[in-house]
Design a protein around this nucleic acid. Structure first.
Length: 285
DNA sequence: CGCCAGGGACGAA
DNA sequence: TTCGTCCATGGC
């Protein structure tokens, strides 16, 4: 995978393991979406970005000099997904899922955004989650200059200092509102810190996340997988529960043992392939 | 009306 | 530890 930084764009060549649709549509992030012309756009690191695809390349429309390390990490560009897919392709179901969504890359998202977004995600559906996250940014984030539409940054913890559940009323978050207010406080106090969690083991980091009210097993795994690079995580939501039963005959209580045995070092990647395959094709519903 | 959505807190057994 | 029950909101 070769990265070419030009003045006004960055070209990534050799993208047989990178599809914008798969990556942005697989439910891991909520702030990027497809436009009518087939391009994708969204916000990360406080910056608006638009992306397009050509035959064997992805084009990121930003100044080459601005495409720093955080963006390379964001798209996980240094990882060999071909190797991961090969290692996982030992059963028919996984081969089908990879055939379907093999362009997924697990985005390394900003910790705080991921934390808040996945608290919002609980017992909710993806279109509504996206709407709520957008509304949250519109309320508390900073406006970003961007062609064709209004975009807002995801607010920083400091932007939210003193936030109360009542301040979120217009977002209709229901019982999640106090969880969010509490989580913001935990981050501001320093008790929950992404940099610190990142260097802990999966188990230790998860334990810490579970101590936050409003973060349970599933949300913790999403944060661990999508922002902390803990690929042992296998977020188990209602879709995955259904899929594991229908496709593998594995019951919920046996999923933790099974994911290790079947998916080895790559449970998180396997989970994304299965989740996307299940949601988009309805296989085994 | 009931059921579901990328669930979790809480109390009871 | 595991198991009900309740929790807001909106789409279908």
């Amino acid at each position: 995978m070769k990265i070419e930084r030009q003045k006004d764009k960055v070209i990534i060549y050799g993208t047989e393991d990178f599809s914008l649709l798969h990556t942005f549509d697989c439910g891991q992030c909520f702030r990027f979406s497809e436009k009518e012309d087939g391009s994708f756009s969204g916000v990360a690191f406080g910056k608006y970005v638009r992306l397009t695809e050509e035959d064997d390349s992805v084009i990121i429309h930003m100044k080459g000099e601005e495409f720093g390390e955080e963006w390379e990490k964001f798209f996980d560009l240094s990882r060999d997904y071909g190797e991961i897919k090969k290692a996982l392709s030992h059963d028919e179901t996984m081969r089908n899922a990879i055939e379907f969504g093999g362009g997924i890359r697990i985005l390394r998202q900003e910790f705080f955004e991921c934390l808040i977004s996945f608290i919002i995600s609980q017992q909710n559906n993806i279109p509504r989650i996206k709407k709520a996250v957008e509304g949250f940014c519109r309320l508390f984030g900073k406006k970003i200059e961007a062609p064709g539409g209004e975009f807002y940054s995801f607010p920083s913890p400091e932007d939210l200092r003193g936030l109360k559940a009542e301040d979120l009323e217009s977002l209709k978050l229901g019982y999640r509102a106090p969880y969010i207010a509490g989580a913001v406080e935990e981050v501001l106090s320093g008790r929950i810190n992404g940099d610190e969690l990142e260097v802990l083991s999966y188990e230790e980091a998860k334990k810490k996340l579970l101590s936050v009210k409003g973060i349970g097993n599933k949300v913790a795994d999403c944060i661990l997988l999508f922002s902390l690079g803990k690929f042992e995580a296998f977020p188990t939501d209602t879709w995955i529960k259904k899929a594991m039963l229908a496709l593998y005959g594995v019951e919920e209580k046996n999923i933790p043992a099974y994911k290790e045995e079947a998916f080895g070092k790559y449970p998180g990647f396997a989970q994304q392939y299965i989740f996307y395959y299940m949601r988009e094709t309805g296989r085994g519903k």
